[in-house]
Every structure is written in structure tokens, then in C-alpha cells.
Write a protein that binds this DNA or RNA. Structure first.
Length: 113
RNA sequence: AAGCUCGGUUGACUCUGCCGCCUCACUUGUGGGGAGGAAAGUCCGGACAACAUAGGGAGCCACACUUUUUGAAAGGAAAGGCGCGUUCAACGGAACGUGACAGACAGUGCCACAGAGAUUUAAACCGCCGAUGGCCUUCGGGCACAGGCAAGGCUGAAAAGGUGAGGUAAGAGCUCACCAGCGCAAGGGUGACCUUGCGGCUUGGGCAAACCUUGUGGGUUGCAAGACCAUGUAAACUGGCGUUCGAAGGCGUCCCGCUUGAGUCAGAGGGUAGGUCGCGUCAGAUCAAUGGCAGAGCCCUUCGGGGAACAGAAUCCGGCUUACACCGUGUUUUGAA
RNA sequence: GACCUGGUAGCUCAGCUGGUUAGAGCAUCUCACUUUUAAUGAGAGGGUCCUGGGUUCGAGUCCCAGCCGGGUCA
């Protein structure tokens, strides 16, 4: 995670900010993703959990497109999603945002090759 | 309709299908379980763990009407007593509400400002009187000098019992009656307390959410407790104290006692900062799982839609407090008929 | 998770054992000085003492509950 913040590429899809880096992961998987919602913006744990669950679900749906051509010895990616908005989004909004982010990520991965 | 009071709630969507998460069981696919009444605040009390091991005292902290009851404790419930407030009554009291409600006759302390006087012989500013003594006198009295007085005014949160009568120069518990308060006795009540009688009245009060006293209870620290495994380093350096005349530790503080007994404390510096258990719980995480989509039903709608409010378990229980929705009881206010 | 600590003027802080009118420095405003500004001097304004109850004659201070910050412990 520190590596992702230090060297990762920035992907903006306001109000979602993503950082991604190509690195060796501990398991044979294409991605490891982390989700973050700031405590300063959302004081109540209920709201933070809600946003993280929506982002998690959107990522689950969208990552399949990225992962379908992945082979066990291909490069692995660590991704961190940070929510920086001030209001709780609906699921459809959240899905569109993650979709934009994953498309950018796909381009970056192609460029990396 | 709104507010208040008390009580209740698996306390909010339901069903079907598909995809997905945590965990357990059998085994590769099924099946079981998967947030709250407050999970919150962390305000109390425990379980549990550590402090090698007995103990005593001081200190510290918490609580405080009585009886019964529930509970491991904290806390709760019922009934009663006393105080205060409101209303009704009309001097017998009654109803409702409310109270962190032991002690101010154990001691210490404080009561600013104002005011003449504020706490142990209280106080003479405006006043009242001036009987007694003094001065003057037309012998009727006058003066207000010595002095007497706490009844009235004033100040204040509070002014040394209250009301009435007698008494007096004027006054005063000075005397008496009743009332309040205090002490003693008797009786009633399990008890808090109440009733009656007697006594003297040199008998002021308030503040213990001031120190404190009395009674009761409490060893301290907390799961980041603690146990184990792994990784790594510096058994080095500087200074203090000390090895039987005893350092330092043994429960946060002090004293005594007991006990271990050669290291220990501080500084600067070097290193690690991962895991397992604790935490077994028909949720069980080491950074934390409960979600999404589609359809039908139901409800709300500002016809776009929406499915609430307060709010998310982190060792576990029992309370307290605070936040909030719905339902019901009682009550108050306002509006309409 | 557990345990400490704080909240006072626009900012940083005092305010002792409850008492008379809540102060200090900086900042702001006005005036003076100066050609002007700064500095300096004089003066003025500015406070829900975090909020709500309670104790008391009287609360920034004492007690209870809440809100919002800061810190410590593996």
C-alpha cells in the first residue's frame, strides 16, 4: 500500500481517486484492491461502511473485464481506491465511476506492457 | 395537530430468482449461522488476567431517609416517613408533583457588597424615652446632658424566635397564653418518625455539590491485561547508588512488618514492531464479513422517485446515561365541527 | 479497546480557597506625531466564560449530564 502511494499512478474519477502500481503480490491473483473512506468527511461508521460496500460491489463487477485475459505469470497490480466526495453516492453512480477508473487502468496496463 | 408523562417493540419492508462476502460442518458442492436497542458515550459494577507471597495502620475513592424485595455487585422496584412547591380547602387537613434526604449540639473555615450593626456580652444611623441623676424653672413644667431602650424605620439572601395580652419612663421571654424550635421522659411504630407531658428560653441562621465527622463498601491496573512462538540487537558506553553497616524489587502513595537478596536506576544509542492463543460463544475480526441486481406485493409521494430515524459488533455479561422511529395509555394547549 | 487532559475577546493565554467591574499581550477602529507609511503615544470597541440542568443569597470557579478538541498505552 505504501508503494502504491509512493510510486503508483494516479487515476482521477471524481469523487473517486485511485492509485495503482505493478508489483509482486503474495498470492497468484491479478489484483489486490483496497478501499478507503476518510473519517474526516464521514463521521459515522455506518456511512463509511456503506460507501466501501458500494465501491467493493462495483469493483467486483468491473474487474472481471480486466481479469479475463490474465495468466498466472502475468504482471500483478495493487490498487487503492479512495473516496473523496462529501455525499453518499448511489450504486449506479458508483459503478460508472469505477468503470471509468478501470478503463484508465486498462490503458495504463497496456502502456506498461 | 403539537408538547409532556408512562409503557411496549426481532426496532420496518415481505417473498422469489441470480451474483457475491465472513464463518462452521461434511468435503469441491451443498447445508447451518451472520449487527443493535441503544452495538454509542465509556459513566458504574462484575467475570477474567497480571502484579512471587501473609498481614496491620494511615491516606485516597465511592455511596448516604426507613422497611421490604430483586440482584453476584452496581443498580432497580414497591410501600412508608420527612422537607419543599402547587391546587383545593379554611386552620383538623387533603390531593398531586418533587427532593444527591446522614450529621451544622464533634471541630475548623466562609457569609462579598450594602448597612449603625453579620456571628459568642451583636449593633444606636433615623428613632423612642429620659422614671433615676444633672441643668433651668413663673414649680405647671422644660432641656435632651449623663444615661436607658432592640418596639418601629433603613440595608441585606439572612438582623438574635412569631402572634396577642400584661408590664414599663420607654422597652425587653421581663411575665403569661398559644405556636415554632431545643432538651428530657413516657407511649406508639420492625424502622425512618410520630403523639403526649415536663423543663428552661443567654434559643439566632445558612453553606458539608467547603474542609470534615459518622456509617457502609473498595488491593491496584487493565484484553493495547497477559501467555507462547518467530525475527532482530550492543552481555557494549557514560554517570548515580550498592553487595551483609544491604542497593533495588516485592500493589499507584506513606509508615510498620514480612520477604527476595547482587545488582539496579538514569542518560544517550542499537534493534524488533510479525504471528498464535486470550476471543471455545449457533456473528467472531488483527484493520476487520451482512452487499448488489431483477421481478411481484405493500406503504409514502412534491409523480421525478423513495422504503425510514438514531445508528455498525471487536473478550464477554449486568446496569446507567444520551440519540431516535412506530404503537398504545393518560394529560395540557391550539384549531375546526 | 482502555485511560488522561482541555474548551474564557478575532488569536495566544491569566483568572488562587465561589464575591463586588471577567483581565493581559497581539490584532481591529479612532486621534496625535509624519509629506505618507511603519514604529511610537493616547483612547475606544469587542465576551452565550463550549451547551443544558442543579447546589448556593450569589457559579467562569463546585456537582451531574452532554457536545467538541488534544494526548498516552501494544
Amino acid at each position: 500500500m505504501d508503494l502504491a502511494f509512493a510510486k503508483g499512478i494516479k487515476i482521477k474519477a471524481f469523487p473517486i481517486l485511485a492509485r495503482a502500481v505493478q508489483t509482486e503480490l503474495s498470492h497468484e491473483v491479478p489484483f489486490q484492491a483496497a478501499l478507503s473512506v476518510g473519517k474526516k468527511r464521514f463521521r459515522r461508521a455506518v456511512d463509511r461502511n456503506r460507501i466501501k460496500r458500494l465501491m467493493r460491489e462495483a469493483w467486483r463487477v468491473e474487474k472481471t473485464a480486466l481479469a479475463k485475459n490474465w495468466k498466472p505469470d502475468a504482471p500483478q497490480w495493487a490498487v487503492v481506491f479512495i473516496f473523496v466526495g462529501n455525499e453518499i453516492p448511489s450504486f449506479s453512480d458508483c459503478q460508472h465511476l469505477i468503470q471509468r477508473a478501470t478503463k484508465r487502468l486498462e490503458m495504463e496496463m497496456a502502456a506498461e506492457k
